[in-house]
Design a protein around this nucleic acid. Structure first.
Lengths: 206, 206
DNA sequence: TAGATTGTTAATCGATTAACAATC
DNA sequence: TAGATTGTTAATCGATTAACAATC
């Protein structure tokens, strides 16, 4: 991975990984740019172009060996070790995330949950004891946690974000419906179901 | 909204709406392409270009009147009436979505929940009785529901999708970590937290 | 009117695609 | 070897940006 890879390509790699993992589970050993393209609605040329950024990952005439390509993509995306994550907010979303089983086999695990509600602090969610927001910075630092999932209400999201930044968190998955201001070395991705629904709405008829 | 607006622009309109709503709530009456751009990390030129697709929505020298622009964007995105949605799957994610309070003021409400587990059917989630998947097609048709949120396991997602299509659903928000095959008149958006986390992972240091 | 900011055109930039040589 | 599919170059396409005239 030499030069600067465009972000748009990096964003597609997890999708490739998702398809490849499914194909592998189905017992397939090789795949083609054509097959990957059909699964993801992308052109075969684009798949090849994307993958060629990282070396010669396929074999001419044969296609791509699935196991090898998965391994390679995991390396590129730095997914070889399971990363610890903190969930901020012990509401419904935080709860669902803490219980979500799809993380571990994709490189992540929730190790900490923080909430500011005294009624929740000390209770357990899937074996994880909810900790006080007051201790958050310290705990994140001590455990060297770099990834956080933000599920607080919009009003407190920016304030919490500043604490996360202070604690050394470098990646934030933001479920609060508000844009976060962060320093350039901190990366944020948004998940806002209403945004997607509103986009879908445009394409509805009536 | 005459010609064909590029999908990439449509996808940004909900973000504009989100910022505008926040500014309005903060008591602001006018905004500038500069301000919107700073909030969303987009250039002012892009904001103006996007909005100009739909007519002259601003006033030269003055900027954009927030209330008017919100109204206009709601029209464009067909958000003027609250749309009914079905949640498929009564697990943690389905449960969190049914209880999510952010939908109504953004144009949507969950009216139905379906699950195949006899232990869940008939129980209530936030006042909504969980219905049997066996009745799904009929109920969706009877209620003319066009939007569904899919939260089943990956294995059953494609099968359920085919039922949704059969029932006349035209927009699917897919939480299952798998690509769905749908006819061209059905639109799908994906929410897969692991995909975003994997992208974020690339930008982490070690 | 002067000052400000939009709307819009033209230029730039970057991403996608087509096409084919390389090679398994 | 012949057939197939990648890797890669060049062409195309589309999106973003710069710049400025229009106009409030």
């Amino acid at each position: 991975m030499p030069q600067d890879i465009p972000e748009i390509i990096i964003g597609r790699l997890p999708l490739y990984l998702r398809v490849l993992t499914r194909l592998e589970k189905q017992g397939q050993e090789f795949t083609l740019s054509k097959e990957l393209g059909e699964a993801l609605n992308l052109s075969p040329a684009q798949i090849r172009k994307d993958l060629s950024q990282f070396g010669e990952l396929g074999t001419r005439g044969q296609g791509y060996q699935i196991g090898f390509l998965i391994e390679k993509l995991r390396q590129i995306l730095k997914l070889e070790e399971i990363r610890d994550m903190a969930v901020i907010g012990g509401g419904d979303v935080g709860h669902a995330l803490a219980r979500y089983e799809g993380f571990t086999n994709r490189g992540f695990q929730v190790t900490n949950i923080f909430d500011s509600d005294p009624g929740k602090i000390g209770s357990r969610m899937t074996g994880i004891v909810v900790q006080s927001s007051a201790d958050m910075i310290q705990v994140l630092r001590e455990n060297n946690i770099k990834v956080a999932i933000l599920t607080t209400p919009a009003e407190s999201a920016q304030g919490v974000t500043e604490q996360l930044v202070e604690a050394g968190v470098k990646a934030i998955l933001n479920y609060a419906p508000i844009e976060l201001k962060v320093p350039p070395d901190v990366h944020v991705e948004h998940i806002d179901p209403a945004v997607y629904l509103q986009k879908l709405s445009y394409y509805l008829e009536e």
